[in-house]
């Protein structure tokens, strides 16, 4: 009984301190006004930002650094695939190394087919078929490939898709990065963010006509980041299509 009363007193005291702003974090640098502080869950506008209980305040500016790493790194990869940047791949390769880690990817590529294969019938011999002329570089990555290697394979996959698919990507733009969760634990971070973006394509038909398309897509990405030499780097990136944006 005595113990529970003491506990209540302590809780009441903590609540009082929070109310007068001794413990509560009312404003976080780079995040604007924080709406709610409750335990280790911080609400910012409609989004929820989780911050670990230990070292809460020193970690807060890291949120902005993490966002910058994701937004710059992800855009850079798409930039590297644009038609006008094809000749500058070495530059982009070097730049991508600043944002993507050389540690083994948290989300390695799996194998798409069951092992047993057979082909008892001849294939359709259609002109223009690119079957097996070049399997995606993503599927050729060795076990334990780094996230940087994976992202370079993604750029190469995009280039091959363009060349073989007779289209070019002339531009892209991001409509929004909508952060759903940022969870920081010492030198690691998990981030869930919705990215809505568009790309502009030009397709060349065999008769010489050009078709254009500017599809908009929505992807919910899960990023994992690690801090290397004081700098956040992405060591895992995967996504699902947001319902309603399926091609």
């Amino acid at each position: 009984m005595l113990k529970s009363i003491s506990t209540l007193k302590v809780l009441f005291f903590i609540a009082l301190l929070s109310l007068i702003g001794v413990l509560g974090v009312k404003r976080i640098q780079g995040m604007g006004m924080v709406n709610t502080v409750h335990g280790d869950v911080i609400r910012h506008n409609e989004n929820i930002v989780y911050i670990s209980k230990t070292e809460r305040i020193p970690e807060v500016p890291e949120v902005e650094r993490i966002k910058a790493t994701i937004e710059t790194g992800w855009r850079l990869r798409l930039q590297a695939g644009l038609d006008r940047n094809k000749d500058n791949f070495d530059f982009f390769k070097e730049q991508l190394g600043r944002f993507y880690s050389e540690r083994p990817s948290r989300f390695p590529v799996q194998s798409p087919w069951p092992q047993r294969q057979s082909s008892p019938y001849p294939e359709k011999n259609a002109s223009g078929t690119n079957k097996n002329e070049g399997v995606s570089p993503l599927l050729m990555l060795p076990p334990g490939a780094s996230e940087l290697e994976k992202q370079l394979a993604v750029v190469e996959n995009g280039r091959l898709n363009e060349e073989r698919g007779n289209f070019r990507v002339v531009d892209f733009g991001v409509k929004k990065f909508d952060y759903k969760r940022i969870n920081i634990r010492a030198n690691e971070a998990d981030v869930i963010v919705d990215i809505v973006f568009w790309s502009k394509f030009k397709f060349e038909n065999p008769d010489g006509t050009i078709a254009t398309a500017t599809p908009t897509g929505g992807e919910q990405h899960t990023f994992h980041l690690v801090k290397e030499d004081g700098r956040w780097k992405i060591d895992g990136d995967t996504f699902i299509i947001i319902p309603g944006y399926e091609p």
């Binding site: 294969q117 359709k124 002109s127 078929t129 097996n132 002329e133 698919g165 007779n166 065999p206």
Partner: peptide, 11 residues
């Protein structure tokens, strides 16, 4: 199953 890359024909 098998993998393909884009082209006019899917195969």
């Amino acid at each position: 199953g098998y993998c393909v890359s884009p082209g006019y024909s899917s195969s």
